Amino acid sequence: MWKLGAGVVWRAAYARAVRSAFATVPFYRERWALDGREDPVLVPGRTGTNGGAVPLAEAVHKSVDLVPLAGGASRGEPARGLGRVLRMAREPGPGSLVVLLGPDGLRPPADLPKGVRGCVADPDAPSAPVLREVTVRLERGHRVLAVGDDKAITTFTGDHRVEAVPHRELDSLDGGPYGVLHDPVLGYLGALGGCGRWHLDWPHVYARPTAGGLAFTLLRQASPRFVDVIPAGGVHGEIAPCPRHGTPVVLA
């Protein structure tokens, strides 16, 4: 059962995102005007392919057209949403250090809780300042969380005091015990909760099943706009309320 009002609020936010994208974003204006979409239907009689959802790879190929007419960024942010999903996965406390592992050019997370410091590191060749910061935090009794794929976390450090928060893409969800749902383009979409279910960051992310696979919408990202995009090549599954929390979880 949905948490009181959560399903209604979530659905309303999604409908607003769809109508806004149709009105202001060239990619969706053209696609939905010609082919249509459903739930909600925008052009009577046209329900579209996969209900209007589109493979993420196809949308990214036309990234310039994902920018609203008023302008904005044209590149996705891989670290988007990390601070929010960490609260579900392995919440860092004051004084903690979050090390985001990835390639050069990755930006540090900007939405971490107050009192938590974040940095980025190349797992194969972490810089001396990052390693020094990790050592200092651990010696002071603070927590250090390493976020990235399994190989990156293993390569980065063998210190058992560093807490692993592994990436899981939509096609590789498992039973944890820890993990964050990540897409290289869309950013962080959810996390494995203490209840053992993959919770969406539902105030910011909407998802629905389509014939082409689960489609995701970033509800609050101004640009580029991702609305009803199908990541990971198309993974079929369901979105249902968590029996314990009443908020959306992914069943894939």
Rank of each mutant, 00 (worst) to 15 (best):
S96Y: 07
A79C: 05
V64Q: 13
A121Y: 09
H199P: 10
A59I: 03
A164S: 13
W198I: 07
W2H: 06
G148M: 04
D171Q: 12
R197E: 13
T155E: 14
V235E: 02
D65V: 01
L173P: 09
A252G: 13
R84E: 05
G175D: 15
N50S: 11
E169A: 11
G52R: 08
R132V: 00
G115F: 08
V85N: 04
A73Y: 06
D122E: 12
H167I: 06
D122P: 06
P166T: 09
S63I: 08
P243I: 12
A21E: 07
W32S: 04
V250A: 11
S172Y: 06
H61E: 15
A191G: 08
V116R: 09
G71F: 13
R143A: 15
L97N: 05
G212Y: 03
G72I: 11
V205E: 02
G72K: 07
V43A: 11
S20A: 14
L251W: 08
G141V: 09
V134T: 08
H142W: 14
A125N: 11
T247P: 14
L69E: 12
C195F: 09
A164W: 07
M1S: 14
P243S: 11
V64G: 05
D39E: 15
V116P: 10
H236Y: 02
G102Q: 05
Y206Q: 00
G233Y: 07
V60I: 10
Q221V: 08
P103F: 01
S172K: 15
G246A: 14
H182D: 02
P184F: 15
G141K: 13
P243F: 12
A89D: 08
Y28W: 11
F22M: 12
G36V: 03
G45K: 12
L131E: 12
D171W: 12
V180Y: 04
L200A: 12
V136K: 13
P129M: 02
A53V: 02
T217P: 00
T155G: 01
C119G: 02
W202N: 01
G187K: 08
V60A: 04
D183W: 13
C242G: 06
V43G: 04
L86A: 03
L200Q: 12
C195R: 11
F216H: 00
R75I: 09
G72D: 11
G187W: 05
D150E: 15
D65I: 00
G246K: 14
A128H: 09
